[in-house]
């Protein structure tokens, strides 16, 4: 296996494009190295992107945030502006693995691993995040929800790499939240994850995005769940409708981490809890 650590994105693209064997991008490596250890992944080439300065930083600008692909979730958690604007996204990212894993894992890696249970993905989608993809033909930017196409599968073409995730600025009357359910308090994979982003107008929800993880082959946006909240003060009735809409949208599988029936049920429960937090954050920011 060859190991390359280029210092420019151009070199990354070139290496990936040229490789005839199995090539992988190494950022945090917390999924990749596990796959290698278990003999499930046998790369011919690893391209380490951590030596590219632009990949290592979180940038803030007038239009929002740009999270470099090699920024660890621990670093993201230490970014005060991000934490203030998008607490749900940061909390979701910080739920991935232990402190040790946090020191390495990245949201882009979490996205590209394309696990249906990825914690950061529902929160990113709810926040309207976009992925900046670089390939031999240049850059393209697509919505995060369009990256994963199925378990372990992405829309990235050979030689393409995600350079960064962008997030808009959060408005003053908006708030986001992410909650997941796991049997253990830590070190676990979501049985269900829910990301919610709400905007208020005059105390009522005017915009909402509700995204579920671990209940379908990819994270899913649930417009009916958003509808249930829009125009409400997230009252009891709205929450009941939210829960019902979330459960109705679930298409989970039975597996070692939870039955389909359980996931469907818990999706509603976690959505209600997340909505309350997001509503509070949207209100308190106002």
């Amino acid at each position: 296996m060859r190991y390359e650590s280029p210092t420019t994105i151009k070199e990354v693209v070139g290496l990936l494009k040229k490789e005839r064997g199995k090539a992988f991008v190494l950022a945090g490596g917390t999924d990749l190295l596990v796959g290698m250890k278990l003999g499930m992944i046998e790369p011919d080439l690893l391209v380490d992107i951590k030596h590219i300065p632009a990949m290592r930083t979180v940038k803030t600008s007038k239009t929002g945030f740009r999270i470099g692909a090699a920024v660890s979730c621990a670093e993201l958690g230490e970014h005060k502006a991000m934490k203030k604007a998008w607490p749900g996204v940061v909390e979701a990212a910080n739920l991935i693995g232990s402190d040790q894993v946090q020191g390495r894992c990245t949201v882009v890696g979490n996205l590209c691993n394309a696990s249906p249970a990825a914690d950061s993905v529902p929160a990113l989608i709810a926040a309207g995040a976009k992925a900046v993809i670089v390939g031999a033909d240049g850059r393209r930017t697509i919505a995060v929800e369009n990256i994963a196409t199925g378990p372990g599968k992405t829309c990235l073409k050979k030689g393409e790499v995600i350079e960064a995730i962008t997030l808009p600025n959060q408005t003053k009357t908006s708030g986001d939240a992410y909650l997941r359910f796991t049997p253990r308090t830590e070190m676990d994979i979501a049985v269900v994850g829910v990301g919610i982003n709400l905007t208020l107008e005059k105390g009522l929800v005017s915009k909402a995005r509700v995204v579920l993880g671990a209940v379908a082959p990819t994270a899913i946006t649930v417009p009916e769940a958003a509808e249930a909240l829009i125009g409400t003060k997230v009252d009891k009735k709205a929450l009941e409708n939210l829960a019902a809409a979330c459960s109705a949208a679930c298409r989970p599988i039975d597996d070692k981490r939870g039955s389909a029936e359980y996931r469907t049920r818990i999706a509603g429960v976690m959505a209600v809890r997340a909505a309350k937090i997001a509503f509070k954050r949207a209100g308190s920011a106002a």
Partner: peptide
């Protein structure tokens, strides 16, 4: 596989599992 922490080390001061880092890194 990064699940037990027995291999914890610091890398440039940050806590990591050394089983999830390559030697070359």
């Amino acid at each position: 596989t990064g699940d037990c922490g027995a291999c914890s080390v610091t890398l440039d001061g940050r806590l990591v599992c050394s089983c999830l880092v390559l030697g070359v890194e």
